[in-house]
């Protein structure tokens, strides 16, 4: 008679653990979403804490960092290069070309975004649309 409630409890506990396991795996699974407005470019978003997967082009990626509301941009990037934007701030930023359509990436707080640099060489002025004081230039050559 005592065995039946015990079995029921074990079954319930197993069900709860199983369900919570499903939930946690769903929230921690890396996801990739498009985050760019320009039709000529592609961008990906890696959530905070998610592992970045290695790809054949990873070694050639250029890194732009955002820290303390400042962009750190390489001297120049090659046309069509893969550019990673790492936002180390606690707030979101954007990496938006002043000339509409060249690039527009939302850099989520603590995450790394990836986009393709413009294929046309030139100096592209950019800004953060959320913080008008954050500006700079991306040289493509």
């Amino acid at each position: 008679m005592i065995i039946k409630p015990a079995l029921t409890a074990i079954a319930a506990a197993t069900l709860i653990v199983g369900l919570s396991g499903c939930g946690s795996s769903a929230t921690t699974a890396p996801s990739t979403t498009t985050a760019v407005a320009s039709p000529s470019m592609s961008a990906t978003h890696t959530p905070p804490g998610a592992a970045t997967s290695a790809s054949p082009s990873a070694g050639r990626a250029v890194l732009i960092t955002i820290k303390d509301y400042k962009f750190t941009v390489p001297t120049s990037v090659a046309p069509g290069a893969t550019v990673m934007i790492m936002n180390l701030d606690a707030v979101n930023h954007t990496f938006t070309s002043v000339t509409a359509g060249a690039f527009n990436v939302t850099a989520v707080a603590g995450a790394t975004e990836t986009f393709t640099a413009p294929s046309k060489p030139g100096s592209y002025m950019f800004k953060c649309t959320f913080h008008a004081n954050m500006t700079g230039a991306l040289v493509v050559k």
Partner: peptide, 20 residues
């Protein structure tokens, strides 16, 4: 001060001054 998000208040640390 780099104050983290607290309840209804988001993290708003902004270590700079600008004209506005």
């Amino acid at each position: 001060v780099d104050v983290p998000a607290l309840g209804p208040f988001p993290a708003m640390y902004e270590p700079l001054w600008f004209p506005e």
